[in-house]
Design a protein around this nucleic acid. Structure first.
Length: 645
DNA sequence: GGGAGAGACGTTTTT
DNA sequence: CGTCTCTCCC
């Protein structure tokens, strides 16, 4: 296919695809066809003979990276599959994994899972307060990295903060591991301090999608990767909803100023949403300050759409009413289950609607982020698998040695570590020698006991791995309800890795890798035949013909944290963007379907239920609430709210 | 090192 | 109201 086939030369997509500037910023509103434009641009580069291996396309989320990869491959030009399309973290992980870089930095890119951080925090000096305090400090550090504060000269680093950071880093170095946020910062330092390294000359074209989701550190890595070629960034500050991870929407707003010679292209014609939804969304977001894009415009060919704003007298009534509405619309054939997308501000409400729909005979599934490893036993077993696959994995060993104790036996563990250090021994060698009786180290007997148990279990597992795979699965994930998710992941991992002729160690390593992947980053299936229920955040990047935004009450959207260091105005603006993202998921379709958006609220709920979803209330009395202030901000673009009794 | 009882807190989200 | 964490005591 020609890259400019059927492209109107006046369209933003054409101008973007054809643009030869070295630096380009695209700001594209929801549903304005930026992926399409990006695709055509890559197609043009390839058709003009650019080397696909020298094109890097990155995004922040894994879903977006997957989409990007699929789309680029579907271009159908030979070599398209060689374009590097990844998340930024996965790119950095790969870069750091190269042997010479590990030697250079002294670090190991073995990411720390959340449950593995607990023992670490217990091992850190108690002068830093209790676990909660330490967790806060740890977050503050990742935040400082994210904001690249340490790069600003004269940043007044508090002495105790500095010491905390040193202790964390030294723990991570001893245990050969890394925090997620460090992956970016280590890459940044490597690239910045080695201006002549191959990685900085590797790409002729760097394209970044969803740029508004990147934080300062991530944006700086992009600058370093692209300093030898062209840089194209695409995003929309109005859809920046990741302030909790310090995403920096100023980055895209200020981009032309920070990148002289930048050409600017705006996509503001929405093809996706029905006209009325475009009008509402546009009015809603106009209440934000400091925006880049003007009004969002509908295409003339878009349908008008159907918008209903409704209110119930209670949360129960809302769940019940939406269940009846959705199930009757599905039953009489006016909508298919896969076209329905229900968005809730909190997961508890999501689960309740899902259960209620399923009970009514509707095929429905919720998509909240779940952690397949829910119980302590599973965490233990997961760490066993990790150690079985890689017997020198210090993080897993640390977790297993501390298991079952509130402080993770940190006092004993410190003795063990310092003994190993003082005698220039490997921690594992110290433990092995103690077990075999060759060595006696004071005050670590509880650890030796744990280590005995661990080695026994590992032996048992290895034997099962070689002789009886079902036994192996049963040990790691006994067939009970709580283990179901992990058990399935494990079985899948084994099926994928254990083939005729692969030796045990190899498939164990592959299976473990697969488990980490699936456990940390659950699938999001694009193909489905059911009603989807998810959080407002999770809906980003999706669209559906029948969108219901539930429980749009003022306590939940906007949700305001009065103790936050972020000003209330800023919080409201971000929540407004979240609401904006949610309603613009609604699409009209060519097959004459107008597209339906339902926004629903209620006026009261029992106090204990309110408490359970983070609304202040007294447990025993009824809590009254009111419709989200954002509904009022639609002004005359939206229909009046309908009361449902 | 483990268990009982008091006390705090309750959300969304990414790699 | 439930769940999780922390403290205290044996």
């Amino acid at each position: 296919m020609e890259w400019d086939k059927n492209l109107d030369k006046e369209s933003a997509a054409y101008r973007f695809a054809a643009d030869n500037s070295k630096i380009i910023r695209v700001v594209a509103g929801p549903g304005t066809g930026k992926s399409f434009g990006l695709n055509r641009r890559v197609a043009r580069l390839l058709e003009q003979g650019q080397n696909p291996k020298k094109i890097l396309a990155v995004t922040f989320t894994r879903t977006a990276a997957q989409d990007l990869q699929n789309e680029i491959q579907s271009i159908g030009i030979s070599g398209a599959d060689k374009v590097v399309a990844k998340t930024l973290h996965s790119f950095c992980f790969g870069l750091l994994n190269k042997k010479e870089i590990i030697q250079n930095t002294g670090r190991f890119p073995r990411p720390m899972l959340e449950f593995e951080q607990k023992p670490m925090l217990n091992d850190i000096d108690s002068t830093f307060g209790d676990i909660k305090n330490k967790e806060t400090r740890l977050k503050a550090f990742e935040a400082a990295w994210a904001r690249l504060q340490s790069e600003i000269p004269g940043f007044p680093a508090d002495a105790s903060d500095r010491q905390f950071e040193n202790e964390i880093k030294s723990w991570l170095i001893t245990h050969k591991a890394m925090l997620f946020g460090e992956m970016i910062i280590e890459t940044f330092h490597y690239l910045r301090d080695n201006p002549l390294c191959v990685e900085r000359q590797e790409f002729d074209h760097v394209l970044v999608d969803e740029y508004q989701d990147l934080n300062k550190a991530e944006q700086s890595v992009i600058d370093l990767l692209s300093d030898n070629g062209s840089l194209t960034i695409i995003g929309d500050d109005d859809q920046s909803i990741y302030s909790f991870k310090y995403a920096n929407p100023e980055g895209i707003r200020e981009f032309p100023n920070t990148h002289p010679g930048c050409n600017v292209i705006d996509f503001d014609h929405c093809r996706r949403c029905p006209k009325q939804v475009v009008a509402m969304a546009s009015r809603l977001i106009s209440h934000n300050t400091n925006r880049t894009l003007g009004d969002l415009q509908p295409f003339d060919t878009n349908q008008d759409g159907v918008v209903r704003i409704i209110q119930w007298k209670s949360l129960d009534a809302e769940i019940d009413g939406i269940t009846r509405k959705v199930s009757s619309d599905i039953k009489d054939g006016s909508i298919r289950p896969e076209d329905v997308l229900i968005l809730t501000p909190v997961r508890k409400i999501g689960y309740r609607v899902r259960d209620s729909l399923v009970k009514a005979g509707v095929n429905a599934k919720s998509y909240f982020r779940e952690w397949a490893i829910s119980t302590n036993e599973l965490k233990y077993n997961f760490s066993l698998l990790s150690l079985l696959a890689n017997k020198k994995d210090m993080v897993s060993l640390r977790y297993l040695l501390g298991f079952g104790n509130q402080t993770y036996r940190s006092a004993s563990y410190k003795h063990l570590i310092s003994y190993a250090k003082d005698n220039h021994m490997d921690t594992l060698d110290v433990l092995d020698s103690c077990v075999s009786g060759v060595l006696k180290v004071p005050r670590i007997s509880s650890l030796i006991n744990q280590y005995r148990i661990i080695t026994e279990k590992l032996k048992e597992l290895r034997f099962a791995a070689e002789t009886d795979i079902n036994q192996f699965i049963d040990i790691l994930a006994p067939d009970i309800q709580e283990n179901e998710d992990f058990r399935n992941i494990l079985i899948e991992a084994i099926n994928l890795s254990k083939k005729e002729g692969t030796d045990t160690q190899t498939w164990l390593q592959d299976a473990y890798k697969h488990c980490v992947e699936k456990v940390s980053f659950p699938d999001n299936t694009s193909e489905h035949d059911h009603v989807r229920i998810m959080s407002l955040h999770a809906s980003k990047g999706l669209s559906a013909k029948y969108v219901i935004v539930m429980s749009a009450i003022d306590e939940l959207i906007p949700r305001i944290d009065r103790d936050s260091e972020i000003s209330i105005e800023k919080q409201i603006e971000e929540q407004r963007r979240l609401f904006y993202v949610a309603i613009t998921r609604c699409k009209s379709s060519k097959e004459n379907y107008p597209g339906t958006l339902i926004i629903s609220s209620f006026v009261g709920l029992p106090g204990n239920e309110a408490l359970g979803i983070g609304i202040k209330a007294s447990a025993y009395s009824r809590r009254s609430v009111s419709a989200s202030r954002f509904i009022r901000e639609f002004e005359e673009t939206a229909p009046a709210t309908i009361a449902v009794k």
